[in-house]
Simulated scan of single mutants.
Amino acid sequence: MTGTVDAGTKQSGDTGAVILAAGAGSRLGRRPKCLLELDGTALIHRQIQAIKALGEIEIVVVLGHHCNLIAPVLEDQPVSIVVQPEDQHSQSASVRLGVSELSAKVNNLLICPSDLPLLNAEDYRAVYDIFRTREPSIHFIGPEVAGIPGHPVIFDSQVIKQILSGDPTFGSGAWRTANPLNTQRWQTTNDHYIRDIDSEEDRRRFEAETKRKLQWSKAVS
C-alpha cells in the first residue's frame, strides 16, 4: 500500500473539489435541491463546510438551472462558481466544466452532487484516507453501499486529464465499468453516501426515517 497521510492531518493544496448543482430539480417541482435546508442549513452550505474541514481544498460549484437562486447564497462562501448553459446540461458536461475551472496545481479531485443531506466531514475524510492509501494502479475510488455506487468519488490527475480531453463516459457511471482495474469500489455500510433527495417522496421518507426536518429555504418557498 502507498501513502502515509494520518487521519487527523489537514490536507495540502493539491486537492480540489467540484460540487454539482446545475440540475433542474424536475422531480421536486423544478426547484434547486441544494437549497433544501437540514437543521436550518442549506445542503450546498453543508457540503462546502464538510469539504473545507479537510483543509486547503479548492472548491468549484457548477450552477446552471436556478443559478439566479443559488448564486446569491454562495456570495460569502469560499468557492468559485461556474455556470453551465441550461440547454447544455448533463452530468458529464457539468463535471468537465467544473474540472476545467480548477487551478493547474490540483492533482486529486473530489466530485459530489449537492443533494446528499447526511454527508459530513467524517464521511469525506473516510473516502479521502482510502484514496491516500490506495494501490498504485488505482486512479479512482468511490464508496459503494449494498451494491449501490455513492458519492463523493475521488480520483487522480490521470482521470482529470481524461475528463478534460472530452471523455464522455465520466459522470454517467460508465467510467467505473469501463476501467475496473483502475477503480476501487470501497465497500461500506454508511448510507450517507447514497442517501440523496430526488423527489418529494424521497424528502418525506428522509424526514420519517431520520426524524429531522428537510425544508425549503426562504429563497425558494
Rank of each mutant, 00 (worst) to 15 (best):
I160P: 03
R132Y: 01
I51Y: 01
A7F: 13
P136D: 11
H66G: 09
V95G: 04
A53T: 08
S114Y: 08
K213E: 15
Y128K: 09
G55F: 00
S165N: 12
E200Y: 09
R134E: 07
I160L: 00
S217W: 01
A17Q: 04
D39K: 11
D129W: 10
N182T: 13
A24E: 13
D76S: 14
S100W: 03
K211E: 14
E200I: 03
T177M: 12
Q47W: 01
P78I: 01
A219M: 11
K33A: 15
P32W: 02
E56V: 10
I44Q: 01
T183V: 12
H66N: 07
Y193N: 03
L28M: 13
V83D: 08
H139Y: 09
N68D: 15
V60C: 15
S92D: 11
G16W: 08
K211G: 09
L36W: 02
H66V: 08
Y124V: 07
A174D: 15
P32A: 03
K211A: 14
N179L: 11
S217D: 04
P32L: 02
K213H: 11
F170R: 07
Y193E: 01
R132V: 10
S12K: 13
S221T: 12
M1Q: 11
S90M: 06
H192S: 13
D76F: 08
T177R: 15
V220W: 05
V95F: 08
I57L: 14
T9C: 12
P113A: 10
K218P: 00
E56Y: 06
G40K: 04
C34N: 06
T169H: 03
D115F: 04
V159A: 02
H151Y: 15
A93N: 14
S137V: 12
Y128L: 15
A104M: 10
T188Q: 02
L181R: 14
R46K: 10
V159F: 06
I51G: 02
T183W: 15
T133S: 15
T15G: 05
T177G: 12
R205G: 00
E58H: 11
D198N: 13
I154R: 01
L118H: 01
S165A: 15
